Simulated assay, not measured.
Amino acid sequence: MRGIRGAITVEKNDSVEICNAVQEMLKAIISENELAAKDIGAAIFSATNDIDAVFPAAAARKMKGWDLVPLFDAQQMTVDGSIEKCIRVLLLVDTDKPQDEIRHIYLRRAKMLRPDILNK
């Protein structure tokens, strides 16, 4: 089992925009790591306190194959100067890939969270 991280930002607290962003992030993680929904043991989402129009897990639940994936939402802790309107995810996946082959995905303004992996 491996953990795969991801994050994405939205411009406004809008349920359609949030759902689209969550699905974009998850599709990128799945594609980059050559996964299928059946490989995912659980997904833990967090969102900054300025996102409350919809649960990020609700967006994941709409994706094909995600109806059996255990999903959990939490509020990201607030830290002065931290990124706003950000949704993060930790996927626990069943894979034989070693950790150094796992591709963590940070999109839009969330790229600033992990500048150390931008060019990998």
Rank of each mutant, 00 (worst) to 15 (best):
36 A>H: 03
62 K>T: 14
94 D>G: 00
39 D>R: 08
50 D>M: 08
119 N>A: 02
78 T>Y: 13
14 D>C: 03
111 K>G: 05
15 S>R: 09
114 R>V: 01
18 I>R: 04
55 F>D: 10
111 K>M: 11
58 A>D: 06
1 M>F: 09
30 I>C: 06
30 I>E: 07
80 D>V: 06
60 A>T: 06
37 A>F: 12
55 F>S: 12
73 D>F: 02
22 V>L: 06
19 C>K: 04
19 C>I: 00
58 A>V: 05
25 M>V: 07
86 C>T: 14
31 S>V: 06
78 T>L: 14
70 P>E: 05
61 R>C: 03
75 Q>L: 14
14 D>E: 12
27 K>H: 06
54 V>L: 13
102 I>A: 05
120 K>I: 13
95 T>Y: 11
90 L>I: 12
95 T>E: 05
57 A>F: 04
116 D>C: 00
53 A>Q: 07
118 L>C: 03
24 E>K: 10
69 V>Q: 02
104 H>P: 06
17 E>F: 00
29 I>Y: 12
37 A>R: 10
30 I>A: 03
21 A>S: 14
95 T>P: 08
103 R>L: 13
83 I>P: 01
88 R>H: 09
29 I>H: 05
33 N>C: 07
46 S>L: 06
15 S>M: 03
74 A>I: 00
96 D>A: 13
71 L>D: 07
86 C>I: 10
97 K>S: 14
36 A>W: 00
79 V>K: 13
56 P>S: 02
83 I>F: 03
90 L>N: 10
111 K>A: 05
100 D>M: 05
58 A>G: 10
56 P>K: 04
81 G>I: 05
74 A>M: 13
43 A>H: 02
107 L>K: 15
48 T>F: 09
44 I>K: 08
62 K>C: 13
31 S>W: 09
52 D>Q: 11
54 V>H: 01
8 I>L: 04
115 P>D: 12
59 A>H: 02
11 E>C: 00
69 V>Y: 01
98 P>Y: 00
65 G>Y: 04
42 A>S: 15
12 K>I: 03
74 A>L: 10
7 A>Q: 09
57 A>L: 04
116 D>Y: 01
16 V>E: 11
66 W>K: 04
1 M>E: 08
53 A>N: 06
92 L>I: 13
44 I>Y: 12
47 A>T: 14
87 I>S: 05
105 I>A: 00
43 A>R: 01
57 A>Y: 07
33 N>E: 11
115 P>T: 09
89 V>R: 07
66 W>I: 05
31 S>I: 04
76 Q>V: 04
30 I>M: 15
55 F>T: 02
71 L>K: 03
4 I>R: 03
42 A>R: 15
101 E>A: 07
27 K>P: 00
18 I>Y: 07
32 E>Q: 12
100 D>T: 10
14 D>M: 04
35 L>F: 02
10 V>P: 03
